[in-house]
Structure formats: structure tokens, C-alpha cells
Design a protein around this nucleic acid. Structure first.
Length: 516
RNA sequence: GGCCCCUUCGUCUAGCGGUCUAGGACACUGCCCUUUCACGGCGGCAACACGGGUUCGAGUCCCGUAGGGGUCACCA
């Protein structure tokens, strides 16, 4: 039975790299009928944990990555908040102390710092010589009499190798002598992360520790802890990190200004900002950006498309197939095919996946996805308004994300804005444009029915009677009734707008051209 | 700096000694389709970091060099 976990700290946001790690954990558990556990690493005494955790849980829910044990759902191994497990961690510390695998250390931070700097000055690496280690209770009392306080340190081995069999990296060997005597409990007795993590993984019955590679250097000390306690080793799999767009450094949420130099990243952010602004979506500068999962939910990405893209960031089936449904991901994912080198986050490819995925949905599904944005932007009052369905159907794959409905705002409301360049080129500049538009307006006024087919016939008949090619007028019509040079079919557009609006807009355009 | 990891087109990757004049996808780009835009179709550009080995034969195995990255807290 495979049991995996993801252990977010309650920071208030879900990082894209974190999601990728969580996804691999989730997939691994799901494919074997195992469990995926969410443990909250809140030992940092973070204030307002609940508020900071909510966006993360919401992110998981949106993505459809359900957890079998953890916050909200509970489970047989709780509590799932690390801060509530301190007594368990302390007991482990005591056990380590009693068995001689750890010791009380009375060094003061300044003293250690001074030694560290001195070693650095000499060009040597700092190596703690256990100078303030309390060999026995008497020594401890003596140092406490001096006003010193003890941290608990691991008494790490100083010879031999720590050999890690990693499921993605193969065999990794680290000489024990390169390891420090890591602190596992502060002077106030509170246990540190690495200790807590090992204890909890064991308590939760985690069989596979799948995490980002920055944890690889921490693994020897964790192995020392668990072996000292007589725990079995879990299987380890260290994933390459997700790198910044166009770069090789680890993707971080704090380097936005740097990523903005990447065109794909900047474009995607701008795309999102435009949608957020039009749809009255409240955004915080902190979390509304392509490094954070919220961003995608808020502008109308499909969760499955994001998952599919993330799946390919460091994993491939065969180098040819790229599109996977979630059930297929679960079935086909293997750690064996995880890449060893970091994968750079490519916003353009993500958008391409989303665009493709969205185009593949039914009109009904796309309508449902688009509706909240149309309502938010004030385009319609409710999802039931027929015009919305018409626009969604006509727009087809021009909608890449649900929020893109705002691009067709001219289908819903007046007045419209005319793009200066298009207006000039299609209406002002051609000598005959105004006359033709007026003529077409008259034809429209006389029309009895006005669906797309009728509109097409109307325009074509008009061209015939005026003895012109359709190309001579159709651009002017489009610009006159939409204000823009690009969009879906003109006949669909005319039908959606309706006879009255078409007439009004043509008249407005003619007047505007005359004023110009 | 120590330790550890990584290295195929701009990016994600396929490749597990010969089928590689290195394949697919995104991006870019040419043409076609077309009333615009988008889609689609057909093309194009573009990579094995370098140097030594091993081998009849190396992108594929070994060693070295270079480069990149991660990590070195009484953070998680």
C-alpha cells in the first residue's frame, strides 16, 4: 500500500512548483489505490494559520487533488497539524537523547557564529567540535550554572557513508564526515522541522517520500534520525525543481520583476490582469501572478489543463504523447520516467495546453465556465441569457481561457469603442465605405428576418446589386458594428447583435467618420 | 568555499551502443485555406557543452574539464 504526503506550510498561496510536487505524490498514491495525505507544517508558530491555509486547500480542491487524510477530512493518524504533534516530537527527542544518538549542547549562538567566521577566514569549512556538549548530567548542571541553555544536537556518525537509493536519481552517496551535528530542538525545547518531519512521516506510515531536490542534502540527517529510532526507511524520490521561465534557477515567488523580462510570462500576466480588471476580480499583488495557482483559477483556466502541463514538467511518457486526462495520468505516471534535470516553467506552453483543452470542451461546458466572467464583467445578468450561448458558440476556439469572453463585450453592450487604426483603415480611408455602409443599412432596415443565414444573404445580395466584391464592404461592416478588425464570423456577429443594433451602430460609425 | 545534483533544438522532452543525415510538442517562421482574427493543413529554422578514453561502432558506457543549480540556521 503506497502512502504519500504533501506538507505545505500555511503561507497563503500555492506555488506552481509545489503543486507539481503534490501532483506527483497524488498520482503515485492514486494509481495503486493508496492514500495521499496532507500534513500542515505550521511549526513556525505562524499567526493566523487558518486564514493562510485556506487558499492552499482551495487550490487543491480546484485542481481536484483530493486528500485521504488531513485538514477538514481528518483520518486515523491525526492530528495533521504539525504544531499539534509537538509532544510526540519531544518524546522522540528524549528517546534520541537517552539512546546516545543526540546530546545536550550548551554552545551559544554567538560562539558558534564566531567559530564559523573564523573557519571561513582560514579558508576551512566549519566543523563543530562538540566543545559544549554535555557529557553527563554533572557537566550539564555546571554549564547551566553559567547561565547557558541547551539545544539538542544529533550525534552524527563521523565515518562511513550514507547511501541513499533514490527512485529518480539512483544511488547517492554522502560521506558522514561531511555532515554536521544538526540541532533537533531549540533551547526552549521546541523540536525542529527535520526531526518533526521524520517522526510524522513514520507515524503516518508514509511509504514514499516524494519531494523537491532541495531536500536531498537533508536526507542523510533524516536517515540518521529514523535509523536511530529503529524506523524503517521510506522510499525516497527527489524531484528536480521547477526553474524560472527562460532560466535555470529555481522558480521563486519573490522574483517577479525578473520574470517579467520573459515575454511569455509578461504576456500571461497582462492577459490575466486585463481579465481581472474587467471582471471585477479582486487581486492581491502577492498572489495574482503566474507563479501562484490562484492566478489560473481566477482568470478561467481549466484545472485539468494546468495539471496536464505540470505533469509534463519533469515527466514524459514517451516523448510523443502530451495530452492526458486525469485518469490517464493516474494510470500512466511512473517515477521511473521522471527527469533528472530541472524543467523551466514555460507560460506560453501552459497557455497552449489550456487553449487546446478549452477548445475541446462542449459548448455547454464552455458556457458554464465563461458565465461567471460574463456576469462579473456586467455583460449579462445571468448565464441563461441566450446571447451568451450564441457568443460562446460563435467564438469557438477564440476563447483560450474562460475570462476571454471580455474580448467580445461588443456583443453585449453599447456604446462600443472604435479602434482608431481599424476605423481609419476600413471606414475613413476607402472612398466608398460610407456610401456602401449607408446602402447596407437601408437593406438591413428593410429585412424581415435576421439570423446568420439571412444576414449573409442580405449582404451578398447587396454586393451584387451594388456591383462590388464582398471584400469591399465586409471589413467596413465589421469595424462599424464591432469597433474592431478581428473577431468571429461577420454574419454570426450581425445575427447576434440583431437588426436594431446593427442599424444604430452603422449610423454611429458613419456619423463618426463624417466628424473625423 | 565544502558537500550533493544536473547538462540533447530558445523551452518541455524522446533517445536506454548500430534503425540518429537525432524524433515529437510549445515558441518563431514560409505557404495554403479564408471576409478579418483564430483554428486547421503542408513546409522551414533550430540541439547531442568540451576533451580524453572503451568499442568494429558513442547522444547513448567510463574519466576529466567547463558550465549551471541545489544546499550548507536554535526556517520550513
Amino acid at each position: 500500500m503506497i502512502r504519500t504526503r504533501f506538507a505545505p506550510s500555511p503561507t497563503g498561496y500555492l506555488h506552481i512548483g509545489g503543486v507539481r510536487t503534490a501532483l506527483f505524490n497524488w498520482l503515485l498514491a492514486k494509481q495503486s489505490g493508496g492514500q495521499f495525505i496532507l500534513r500542515i507544517d505550521d511549526t513556525d508558530a505562524g499567526r493566523n494559520v487558518d486564514a493562510a491555509l485556506q487558499p492552499i486547500l482551495d487550490g487543491f480542491k480546484w485542481l481536484g487533488m483530493d486528500w485521504d487524510e488531513g485538514p477538514e477530512v481528518g483520518g486515523p493518524h491525526g492530528p495533521y497539524y504539525q504544531s499539534q504533534r509537538i509532544e510526540i516530537h519531544k518524546a522522540a527527542v528524549a528517546e534520541l537523547l537517552a539512546s546516545g544518538h543526540a546530546y545536550r549542547d550548551y554552545a551559544r549562538p554567538e560562539e558558534l557564529q564566531a567559530e564559523r567566521e573564523a573557519a571561513e577566514k582560514r579558508g576551512e569549512r566549519f566543523f563543530y567540535d562538540r566543545r559544549w556538549m554535555a557529557a553527563d548530567d554533572a557537566a550539564a548542571s555546571a554549564m547551566e550554572a553559567e547561565g547557558r541553555q541547551a539545544t539538542i544536537r544529533l550525534k552524527m556518525p563521523r565515518e562511513g557513508n550514507c547511501v541513499i537509493e533514490d527512485l529518480v536519481r539512483g544511488t547517492v552517496t554522502v560521506a558522514w564526515e561531511t555532515e554536521q551535528d544538526h540541532v533537533i530542538a531549540r533551547t526552549d525545547g521546541s523540536p525542529l522541522y527535520h526531526l518533526a518531519s521524520v517522526i510524522d512521516d513514520h507515524a503516518f506510515g508514509i511509504t514514499h517520500v516524494v519531494r523537491a531536490e532541495e531536500h536531498l542534502p537533508n536526507t542523510p540527517r533524516q536517515i540518521f534520525i529514523l535509523e536511530s529510532l529503529g524506523y524503517p526507511r521510506p522510499q525516497y524520490a527527489h524531484l528536480p525543481y521547477v526553474a524560472e521561465p527562460g532560466g535555470t534557477a529555481k522558480l521563486s515567488k519573490r522574483k517577479l520583476s525578473k520574470y517579467l523580462k520573459n515575454k511569455g510570462f509578461a504576456d500571461l500576466l497582462a492577459h490575466g490582469q486585463r481579465i481581472a480588471q474587467r471582471c471585477q476580480i479582486e487581486t492581491s499583488e502577492d498572489t495574482f501572478n503566474p507563479v501562484i495557482v490562484d492566478f489560473y483559477r481566477e482568470i478561467g483556466f481549466c484545472a485539468d489543463a494546468l495539471l496536464n502541463y505540470l505533469l509534463l514538467l519533469g515527466w514524459s511518457l514517451d516523448g510523443a504523447r502530451e495530452k492526458f486526462t486525469v485518469p490517464e495520468m493516474i494510470e500512466l505516471f511512473t517515477l521511473q520516467r521522471v527527469t533528472k534535470s530541472p524543467a523551466s516553467f514555460d507560460p506560453q506552453k501552459l497557455l497552449a495546453f489550456q487553449s487546446d483543452h478549452f477548445a475541446g470542451l462542449s459548448d455547454a461546458d464552455r458556457l458554464a465556465a465563461v458565465a461567471p466572467f460574463a456576469i462579473g464583467a456586467g455583460l449579462v445578468q445571468s448565464a441563461d441569457e441566450p446571447v451568451l450561448a450564441s457568443v460562446v458558440a460563435a467564438a469557438g476556439d477564440r476563447l483560450k481561457v474562460a475570462g476571454d469572453i471580455i474580448d467580445f463585450d461588443y456583443c453585449f453592450q453599447d456604446p462600443i469603442e472604435y479602434e482608431a487604426k481599424a476605423f481609419q483603415k476600413r471606414i475613413v480611408k476607402p472612398d466608398d465605405a460610407i456610401g456602401l455602409l449607408q446602402g447596407f443599412r437601408d437593406v438591413v432596415s428593410a429585412a424581415e428576418s435576421f439570423d446568420a443565414a439571412a444576414a449573409e444573404k442580405l449582404l451578398k445580395d447587396y454586393c451584387e446589386s451594388a456591383e462590388i466584391q464582398i471584400g469591399q464592404i465586409i471589413h467596413a461592416v465589421r469595424v462599424a458594428v464591432t469597433g474592431t478588425a478581428a473577431g468571429f464570423g461577420v454574419f454570426d456577429t450581425l445575427a447576434i447583435l440583431g437588426k436594431q443594433r446593427v442599424i444604430e451602430r452603422i449610423e454611429n460609425a458613419v456619423k463618426k467618420a463624417a466628424d473625423a
